[in-house]
Every structure is written in C-alpha cells, then in structure tokens.
C-alpha cells in the first residue's frame, strides 16, 4: 500500500472542526455539540465518534489505552487500537490504566481512579437521553436548553410504579452541573458516580449521531433520582448477603461480569476491568495469597452469557 495518510488519518480541517466543537463542549458542560462526523474506514456504531475525538486530540509521544467493556483484548478495542497505531506514528499504547495519558473506552470507566493529567474518551451510541420521550430533535434541543426534564422524570416514576425500582441498567441519565442531562454512554450504573467531580476530563463522542459532549473535571454529575428512591449501583451480594468476589483475583470491590462455567453449569463472577483484575492478582501473589482458580484471562472454560447492549 503506497497511499500515505496524515498523522491521525483525518485531514487537518476535519481535526480543527472536532477541536473547535470539543472546546465548546467543555465550555457548556453536558451540551451535545453537533459536528460533521466524517466517514471512517469502519462502520458507524463501531466507535467512530470516540475514534474521531482520539485522532483529533492525540499527539506524538502520548501513551494510549483502548478498552472495550473493561477489556483491552475485546474485538472493538483491538481493532481501534491497531487502527490508531497504524495511523498515528510515534504514539505508545498500553493496557495499564496508570501508564496511560489518553484512554478511549467503550462502555466502562476504569476501576483505577483517573488522575488530573489523564483524559478519557467514551464511545457513545445514543447521545440524547430525551429521545425516549420526544422524537423531534428540534423540540429536544429546546427542552435541553430550558433544562426541562419533567418527561424523563415521569418515565423513571412509571418504572417505580411498575417495578418498584428504576430499571435502567446502563446509560443512566445524569445531570451535569445542574443543567443538561446527558446519556453517559452505556456504562453500568457502577461507573456513574465516577463522573462526579472527576479529576480527569471526560469527553463523549457519538459518530453516527454526530455529537460531542463533555463532563469537565471537578464538575457535579448527579444521576436522576427521587428523594425517596435514591440512585443505587449494581448489587453483587449473593443470597446470603455476602459480597461476591472475582473468581480470578478475589477482589470484592470491583464491577463483576457474570459467566456460566460450561462444565459445572454454575454461575461464576469475574472483574470486568481486566487491567484491574491483573493488578489485584499480582498484588495477591505478592502478599502470598492464592489468586483465583484461573490464571488465564479470559478463562477458556467458560462462556459469557451476559452481553450488554450497544
């Protein structure tokens, strides 16, 4: 192949437009800034919004981590990482959260708390939380401008009436700096509190829907809830009220994926964040504890049964 692309694949005009939109997104926390999402050499819906942000922002000498559902080895992460490595000569990649300057992620925020000098880009399939209650974008833009989320609250209330709790498992509507409500991308509820007063800048990019928005550092991010029905994260307790642990590293404080062991048919649990799991595993070896039963990641004898949407 002899065709040469500029650093970052996108041409400089495309990058400048993404950059200008990103500055406005940071200046107006939670507002979805429209931009002319470019055609990328992969299908829309495969993280092209996050990818365009990364390609427009990343510079030589920076270290990048790409995650898909907590894992650096999932297909989306592998594809995006190798595309970025191919088109951004002079960058480094890592799987370790604390070594990364720049993180692009699909559907998880790392368990390791991010620092001020780090930046995370989240891939967004559906940017507008109001789309479930208002089909017209013109009208949604006015509702957002007026911070009128009454219909969304009614939707949550209907959930409580029907099911005794709010049933949104991921993409939990979250209010940024007391005004705009965002769709924080399909992160689990577990990750929503990490948006609040984050030390790192959080950027969200939707390629198909052509929107960029941001949660600046040290900014209030409140999940929508009611006084008598507060927001809560996933509960990993077993039937005896005991917190389940990761079968691989033994961690009892991380977000767990549920698997079924194909031999025994039993449910097993394992950290969703593979870098976190590795770090816990090596920490337990250093302390002389026995890590979980499986040393390989992902273990080969089990099938994942829970597949998140988006």
């Amino acid at each position: 192949m002899s065709a040469s692309y500029p650093f970052g694949f996108l041409n400089e005009y495309a990058k400048k437009e993404v950059r200008r939109s990103t500055l406005k997104a940071v200046a107006i926390p939670g507002y979805q800034v429209p931009y002319s999402s470019r055609e990328m050499p992969m299908g829309r819906g495969f993280g092209t919004g996050g990818l365009q942000l990364t390609l427009s922002l990343l510079g030589k000498g920076e270290t990048l981590k790409v995650i898909d559902q907590g894992s650096d080895d999932s297909v989306n992460a592998v594809n995006l990482r190798s595309f970025i490595e191919m088109t951004c000569e002079g960058i480094n990649t890592t799987t370790k959260t604390d070594e990364a300057d720049f993180i692009q992620s699909r559907h998880r925020i790392p368990e390791t708390a991010l620092r001020e000098d780090q930046l995370i880009v989240l891939q967004v399939p559906y940017p507008d939380p109001l789309v479930v209650v208002e089909p017209s974008e013109d009208k949604r833009k006015i509702l957002h401008g007026e911070a009128d989320y009454s219909r969304l609250l009614v939707k949550l209330y209907e959930d409580i009436v029907k099911f005794d709790e709010i049933t949104i498992s991921h993409r939990y509507p979250t209010r940024i700096n007391g005004h705009y409500v965002i769709d924080p991308s399909p992160i689990p509820r577990w990750d929503v509190p990490k948006l609040n007063q984050s030390k790192a800048l959080i950027l969200l990019g939707a390629g198909r829907e052509k929107k960029i928005y941001a949660v600046p550092p040290y900014t209030k991010a409140e999940p929508l809830a009611f006084e008598d029905v507060p927001f809560r994260v996933e509960n990993f307790s077993d039937e005896n009220g005991q917190r389940r642990s990761c079968q691989r590293c033994g961690c009892t404080s991380s977000f767990l994926d549920e698997f079924v062991d194909s031999k025994t048919g039993k449910k097993v649990y394992q950290c969703s964040d593979s870098d976190w799991c590795d770090a816990q595993g090596s920490a337990s070896v250093a302390e002389g504890r026995t890590p979980g039963a499986t040393d390989e990641y992902p273990p080969t004898n089990i099938e994942q049964v829970v597949v998140a949407n988006g």
């Binding site: 650093f7 970052g8 400089e12 990058k15 922002l57 800048l201 550092p217």
Partner: peptide, 18 residues
C-alpha cells in the same frame, strides 16, 4: 504545522477544562 497545532490545541483544551 499540524504537530504544533495539536500541542497548542491540547493546551487550549486543558485551559478551557481548568
């Protein structure tokens, strides 16, 4: 040049974020 503009943009982004 693109390299300098990328560096300067990141300074602007950090300035706007903090």
């Amino acid at each position: 040049m693109p390299d300098a503009q990328q560096i300067h943009f990141r300074l602007l982004l950090d300035a706007m974020a903090r």
